[in-house]
Amino acid sequence: MRRVNRQALFGAALLGFFVILAIIAPLIAPYNPDEIVESQTLAPSLSHLFGTDDLGRDLFSRALHGARISLTVGFVAVLISVLIGTLFGAVSGYYGGFLDSVIMRFVDVMLAFPSIFLILAIQSMLTPNIYNVMAVIGLTSWMGVARLVRGEFLRIRELQYVEAARAIGCSDPRIIFRHILPNAQSPIIVAATLGMAGAILTESALSFLGLGVQPPMASWGNMLMDSQAYLFDAPWMSIIPGLLILLTVLSLYFVGEGLREKLNVRG
């Protein structure tokens, strides 16, 4: 119990710190993130906290701006996946029957793909830009939420107050959105937190392979894209963005676990 709380507090603090940095990035970034300001691959120093990259751009400024992109992509992608998952799950769980079977078989199909490759394949056929990244990650990661929401709906649907709402003639959408959904929000919040962690990881992998956020726009993932060639000469180019991803995802996991405990969500 206590350990989970400590972790959650640590996670929330770290996450909050990153979010604030991302918001005020343009104010505190010492350099223009896309501008060549120094010689190439300079090691971290006082004037360039994280060093410079292979083009001579300031990595600290790029990391700050990258935080905006990575966090935004993660947030929007998870928003999309939660919306789709909730809609499918709610319809499936509330109406049951044929609709439920169809939706759940669709979920099974989607779960059978190695999602990262499906995303890569789709990305390769679209123009890889930040909007497509958000959309594709969202469209391929809603299945867990759908199953979860369906389970909650199956459970809550049978409760007496829902029966009562139906008895006084509430419409289906009203029952779904006003009576059932608010009672299913705790597990959705937990899943969204953990889902955002997953989305940030996926974005970083996509961008690392060059199929995500496109240069010169900086994301933590695409900062790593070029770093492999400089692993020997400029290891900081690889170490720092990866650590930032790790810490952000870790803090989201800690917050998610804390919420799970706090909101009393099983799983």
């Binding site: 350990r3 970083s204 992998a205 790593l224 692993l231 290891p235 170490i239 790790l246 995802v249 870790l250």
Partner: peptide, 26 residues
């Protein structure tokens, strides 16, 4: 174990690969 599992889940696989390369090869 709990801390390391969280860290393991949070680590981007490709970055882990790069870091292992950096440590064990470079």
């Amino acid at each position: 174990v709990t801390f390391l599992s969280f860290a393991g889940m949070a680590i981007p696989t490709f970055w882990l690969g790069l870091m292992l390369m950096l440590l064990f090869s470079v």
